[in-house]
């Protein structure tokens, strides 16, 4: 096999730039004024929760949505404040995201919140490192998060301390591994055709 000019090996990368890893830059911290109701929400929260600057690592306003990055130790207190004082009665669940290249903050848990009385939506985000993936549970604040936290544990391995019964919910109870992490293989098998086999989507050539 001849070596191409750009150092590509095998046949996977057809872009010609073997091994080029694009930099992923997510939206950074935003400056005031945030726009629409986000200023009011952050002001109210600061007033109701004086240790705001201690607990909130970052405020991001992107694509018309407010995201508060909260430190995990303060999560429950901030949650109670948001629910009781700022009237964010409903939490739309927990979703996990795994960013393997953000060392020290690989696993994020995202909580979209909804205030029915004020018709507002914000988002809380908590980041934890891979080796110590513990987040305090908010089941006492919003009871509906019970199954969502179980699902995030099942799929990502984030342990929610204080959860009444943290077990696997979607995978069989004795499954090993946490499927939606980026280091967990898709697990497909090759498809057999007459005269050939086709690899599963995770192993096929990538056009990006």
């Amino acid at each position: 096999m001849t070596d191409g000019m750009f150092g590509t090996k095998g046949s996977g990368d057809t872009s010609g730039y073997g091994g080029l890893v694009p930099q992923v830059t997510m939206a950074g911290s935003s400056q005031r004024p945030f726009g629409s109701y986000f200023d009011d929400v952050t002001d109210d929260l600061e007033r109701a929760y004086p240790e705001f600057s201690d607990a909130i690592e970052r405020v991001v306003v992107d694509r018309g949505e407010l995201t508060l990055h909260v430190k995990r130790e303060r999560l429950v207190e901030v949650a109670f404040t948001l629910r009781d004082t700022l009237k964010f009665e409903m939490c739309m669940g927990v979703s996990g995201v795994h960013y393997p290249d953000q060392t020290g903050r690989e696993l994020h848990a995202v909580y979209p919140l909804l205030s029915m009385s004020r018709n507002q939506r914000i988002r809380l985000e908590v980041s934890v490192p891979d080796g110590d993936a513990h987040i305090p549970s908010v089941v006492e604040v919003w009871g509906g998060n019970n199954w969502h936290e179980r699902e995030t544990f099942d799929m990502f391995g984030i342990v929610f301390d204080g959860h009444p019964g943290l077990t696997r919910i979607l995978m069989p109870d004795d499954w090993n591994g946490h499927p939606q992490r980026k280091d967990y293989a898709l697990g497909g098998i090759s498809v057999e055709y007459k005269g050939a086999t086709m690899p599963p989507p995770s192993d096929r050539r990538s056009y990006t």
Partner: peptide, 13 residues
């Protein structure tokens, strides 16, 4: 019949 479009860890093929 064959796992369909879901060729992954969760579905019996």
């Amino acid at each position: 019949s064959s796992g369909g479009m879901f060729n992954n860890y969760a579905i019996v093929q």
